[in-house]
Design a protein around this nucleic acid. Structure first.
Lengths: 193, 193
DNA sequence: ACGAAACGGAACCGATCGGTACCGAATCGA
DNA sequence: TCGATTCGGTACCGATCGGTTCCGTTTCGT
């Protein structure tokens, strides 16, 4: 049932809303960038807000797949999520997290798009719980997600992957049993000049 | 030189932009809520964006004072910042951090308001470095700020002070020397029903 | 008491907002 | 090949956007 126009719209929405913000990008711009006619837009989506919701569902799927993949590629080491995050931050045009940005831009808790944004973070939490099937502190998944979000926001300001490495170091301290004195402290990022 | 109208505008801007978002609140609304005339507005601020910048400068001052106070009241314990944060989150109308929200809503790095938002976080970092005058890991202030930001964003979604307590627990693990086995694990928040 | 400065209200501006209605062309399944 | 569906383009809608201008009143220092 999905057509080409619908996919193009969702892709353009992902690019534009992420890069410039939801309220900052009008429908006009969306149509020009995607090459979709105005009528076609409203044939596929009841409103701009529903396009945001659809874009977020696509983002959710992409990011959860990414998380599974990056951790699996590291042999199941959950710390790999922060290494992958550093790569994402280094990519040009990086601007944090589409879900966080939406929750900031849309205050109304009943807004459909905002609900999808909230659900994304909850799905990420479930994904983390699944990844950590070994015995672990009951609060660890929430802690990792807090570090993940903290790194995302910090990198929004610093414009560098350093926060991901910082979050990784903190997570490492949470994961390793705290009874190995004498280990040399982890290297610290040099100040970015 | 500051007049009454200017102060009222900054206060209304703090309330409205924080509660509903910068782009979501028009100048019209600002004027109605503050009782300031349209002409008076543009006599004090060259643009809406400059009001946002002024509001953020006021926010910066308020939050840095708050940070100093809450830590001093706890006898200098930096962990108190997370206790204070939990209180802030419990307040009605809490919606994260004005600086983070601005950085999300305004993508242009050269925008004056965004610059003020970035400077706020750097000022918070300096404040943290001042607070931690005892010998500490060189990266600790950045780590504490990452936890602070992570908690702020997480609470935006969870709508509860739990993330502040979670961040506090992580910070505690970073602060205390890691050679005291056998201590009972810190209590974990029950799931919010 | 008086002049200057700051004020609130309203009319007005072009631009853009999200959304609707109708068009003719392209596409596609049977 | 033909009919149905999907498409892109455009004109149009009322509302609101940020911003300018003028006017009459209130406030305040002296």
């Amino acid at each position: 049932m999905p057509t080409r126009a619908r996919e193009r719209l969702i892709e353009a929405a992902g690019d534009l809303f992420f890069a410039e913000g939801i309220h900052a990008v009008g429908v006009e711009r969306l149509l020009r960038e995607s090459g979709v006619g105005r009528a076609s837009f409203y044939r596929h989506f009841a409103s701009k807000d529903e396009l945001v919701a659809a874009m977020l569902r696509s983002y959710d799927e992409e990011l959860r797949g990414w998380l599974r993949r990056v951790v699996a590629d590291a042999g199941g080491d959950p710390l790999a999520m922060f290494d992958g995050l550093a790569d994402r931050m280094a990519a040009s045009g990086f601007r944090g997290c589409a879900s966080i940005n939406t929750m900031v831009e849309i205050a109304d808790p009943d807004d459909p798009a905002r609900k999808v944004a909230v659900e994304h973070k909850e799905a990420m939490l479930r994904e983390l719980r699944r990844l950590l099937d070994a015995p672990y502190d009951a609060d660890l998944p929430e802690q990792l997600l807090l570090l993940f979000d903290g790194a995302l926001v910090s990198s929004l300001r610093e414009r560098s992957p350093a926060p991901a490495r910082r979050a990784r170091r903190i997570a490492q301290a949470l994961l390793e049993p705290p009874m190995q004195p004498g280990l040399p402290p982890t290297e610290v990022d040099p100040p970015t000049p």
